Computed example of a mutant assay.
Amino acid sequence: MNVRILYLDDDAAIVRLVQKALGRSGHTVIHAEDLDAALQHLGNDAFDAIVLDHYLSNMTGHDVLNRLRAEGIVLPVVYVTGSNEAQIAIEAIKAGASDYVIKTVGDDFMPLLASAIEQSVANAQLRLAKERADEETRLAKERAEALLAEVNHRVANSLALVASLLRLQISNSENDQVKAELSETQARITAIAGMHRSLYTSDDVSRVEMNIYLSNLLGEIGGSLGNPDKVIKLSFDADPISLSADRAVSVGMIVTELVTNAFKYAYPLELCGEIRVTLKAVGGNEALLTVADDGIGIEPNSKPKGTGLGSRIVKSMSAALGPGLQYRNTHHGTIAEVPIRIVP
């Protein structure tokens, strides 16, 4: 290792001895008698390290360290002092020195100084390499996030287009059963598109803020499933819970199916009703999704109405999120609960 060293000391004789000793190891030592000379050398040349003596003619090495840091000079500094007081070395380290060496008249001073310089330079190079690697990692992460956001944007737009085409097909269809099935399909596609939209509009492209996502999703479901002959109030309350994209889309699909079923079957005779959706944290890593209504209720173990596809979707996705779908006992209406494990 060939190191260029700036030695700040007002004792020229000591510096000449250091120049000869370190020169035999291939190092280059440039002498500066005071701070002004040192700053001039640093402005005109490149160095790998600074050796700084504590006792100078008009200031101490501590003053020099403070000035170097104020000037934005971050080269490793090896502090040299003839004092045996540990406090001087401690204060130097606190002020930014990389290492220190006690100046002695013995033969061990030069090897200790050379070792401290080489170790300080090696550590500084490792820190610089780590900073560069961290910066490259940060830039790569930003590029990946930007690319993922663009992918989510395009997927959301494509799914929105499919949902629009389905909406057009629904309006042109004369068969009520076909209309109902297409509406359910449109709602499922809308749930997935909304999840992708949440990803590309948030700061974290890997997780979905469920209170925002579900609020938007329920607004779209209410708009698409509204019955002109009935007034169904759809309410929503959620804690600020974030989930990974795959778990978020499962929750979105479950909410879509349960709310759609409540719209269709909960109030067959009444002209008005309410559907309540909540998502609440119930522990450090658990949440509870609830969809409730005050309608006619459901019979335990009864066969699903329609094709049964929605029931199979809810059952499968609920099991993937936690213990699975549960129905709470109630005197009237239906209360569906889905426990959710929150995975970091």
Rank of each mutant, 00 (worst) to 15 (best):
R16G: 14
M253K: 06
E274Q: 07
A193S: 10
S115M: 10
S215Y: 03
I14T: 11
Y79L: 02
T201A: 08
A149Q: 11
G106Y: 04
I313G: 01
V343T: 14
K141W: 15
L166F: 07
V338E: 02
A292E: 04
V78F: 00
A114E: 04
T201S: 15
S206H: 12
Y327C: 06
Q125H: 08
A12Y: 09
Q177G: 15
L234Q: 08
S164F: 11
G82R: 09
V343L: 13
S202G: 07
L112S: 10
E85C: 04
A140N: 14
I221L: 13
A46R: 12
G306W: 00
E337W: 09
A156P: 06
G322A: 12
I102F: 01
L65G: 04
S158P: 11
P76G: 09
D36E: 13
H332Y: 12
A266I: 06
I88F: 10
G106E: 11
Q169K: 14
D204N: 12
Q19A: 13
K94D: 14
A144Q: 11
K141D: 05
A89Q: 01
L289C: 10
R276Y: 13
G61C: 05
I14D: 12
R143I: 11
Y267K: 07
T307R: 05
M110T: 06
Y55I: 08
M59W: 13
K141M: 09
